[in-house]
Design a protein around this nucleic acid. Structure first.
Length: 285
DNA sequence: CAGGTC
DNA sequence: GCTGG
């Protein structure tokens, strides 16, 4: 048990299940609500403790392990500063207030890429189901003091299993996208981690080269795993809220990528953070 | 119809 | 155009 230092109030529940990551699982631990994820091959459990996060597993957490967890949870983000980075309108102000402590996560780029290739034309419940099936269909079993757990399959493993394997798990047309993307990553020896913190435009160009990755999916991967906090994914929910609150436009003739670049300029360097608050607010009303 | 892409 | 609710 160890309280993680965080710069701002942390709303764990909203953060973990706000639709940016599908690999966290709610766990009942000692009759308390905890949350579990595997990061870098290690199983972690955390729970909310007032405004902070309590890391409850591993039991004797090492310095390095706590860094891995803090890095994923982005505890160093200064939300107050981000809230003030934009001249707030009524909608954003109420959103900041209602979901104070909602953070972005810093995910593994490969896991994030697969996740959002799965997200196209899909709903959150089934995305979660598909990823669970994918993880459980491989034999990446590890054991710790809590028992067995599994890690995410690598591109090599997915290629070896074949496109039909993904299809049999119910991936539909996304099976081909994930299979081909795996092949490109392996054959071109691409290290997705090298894209972290790199230039937004270069990352967008790189990522949209993968089959099944368009403007929206690429922006999700950049925002949720590559530290491009100015990335701005435009999905149906964001599209709605932009039309309803920021444009007096009932129809939608504007292409998503044009909406995206316009509001990136409007919201500034943390537009991705703003995006996530808008998304979360619009979905929860 | 569901957090699009080719 | 894949597939589940």
């Amino acid at each position: 048990m160890m309280i993680l230092k965080s710069k701002s109030k942390y709303d764990l529940e909203s953060t973990l299940y706000s639709g940016q990551c599908f690999l966290w699982n709610p766990i009942l631990s000692d009759n308390l609500q905890a949350h579990e994820i595997v990061l870098g091959g290690t199983r972690f459990r955390v729970q909310q403790l007032s405004d902070k996060i309590d890391a409850i597993y591993p039991l004797n957490i090492t310095q390095n392990q706590s860094l891995i967890l803090q890095n994923h949870l982005r505890v160093d983000d200064d939300l107050g500063y981000i809230y003030q980075s934009i001249e707030s309108d009524k909608y954003l102000l109420s959103s900041f207030k209602k979901f104070e402590g909602l953070h972005l996560l810093r995910q593994d780029p490969w896991e994030c890429l697969v996740t959002f290739i799965c997200s196209s034309n899909n709903n959150m419940k089934r995305i979660k189901l598909m990823l669970n099936k994918l993880i459980n269909s491989f034999d990446n079993t590890h054991t710790d003091s809590l028992g067995e757990y599994k890690t995410f399959p690598t591109p090599d493993q997915i290629i070896e299993a074949g496109e039909e394997h993904l299809r049999s798990l119910g991936f539909g047309y996304r099976a081909k996208y994930i299979f081909e993307t795996s092949r490109i990553i392996l054959y071109e020896n691409i290290d997705l981690l090298k894209l972290r913190s790199q230039n937004y435009d270069d990352n967008l160009e790189q990522l949209t080269m993968f089959p099944g990755v368009g403007d929206k999916v690429a922006n999700c991967v950049m925002l949720f795993s590559l530290d491009n906090l100015n990335a701005f994914p435009v999905d149906v929910w964001i599209n709605r809220v932009l039309r309803e609150i920021y444009l007096n436009d009932s129809k939608n003739k504007i292409a998503d990528s044009r909406l995206r670049s316009h509001f990136q300029s409007y919201f500034g360097e943390y537009s991705g953070y703003i995006n996530h608050y808008l998304f979360h607010s619009r979905r929860n009303d």
